[in-house]
Amino acid sequence: MCLACHGEKGQSATPDTPSLGGQPAPYLLIQIYLFREKQRAAPLMNEMAKGLTDDDLRALSDALAKLPPPQPPADAPDPARMERGRALITRHRCNSCHNLDLSGRENIPRIASQREDYLARTLREYKSNTRHGYDGVMAEVLGPVTDAEIVDLAHFAAHFR
């Protein structure tokens, strides 16, 4: 049911739809909870999560957490953008919460090898606070990050191995 859009092996080939592989279970639990409660507005996911019980949410997030991490895309990354992206990750200290290898932990998601289109959209939504995070941290973190930097950050994290 989930895998049709999100991919069988944790890797999403569907535009704008995130890969779910290699995500910490607590992070997944929070997101499906936010979808069910409509605190995170995404009509398709709000519909999918409607009526799920608390036990369903736990079972689902535990099951999805077993999916293998996604791989970076086959196309070669743009070296200039990778260089800028690497500098931005350091500058904005993304790797202090998301880990040095961007694999995430607990309630913080894996961003390494996530879909580039999804990452860019997500960063923009957090920056404008149209996507309300569970605890509001990303809205604060993205304050000084420009849209051009978001584009480079998304490219870097998507191609990160």
Partner: peptide, 27 residues
């Protein structure tokens, strides 16, 4: 698959990039 494979270590940080001033609300 078992829990995610440990990823390759991150590449060395670039020499030139210094951390920027953090946004006021940053934890």
């Amino acid at each position: 698959f078992s829990q995610q494979q440990p990823a390759a270590p991150a590449s060395a940080p670039p020499a030139a990039a210094a951390p920027a001033a953090l946004p006021p609300g940053s934890p």
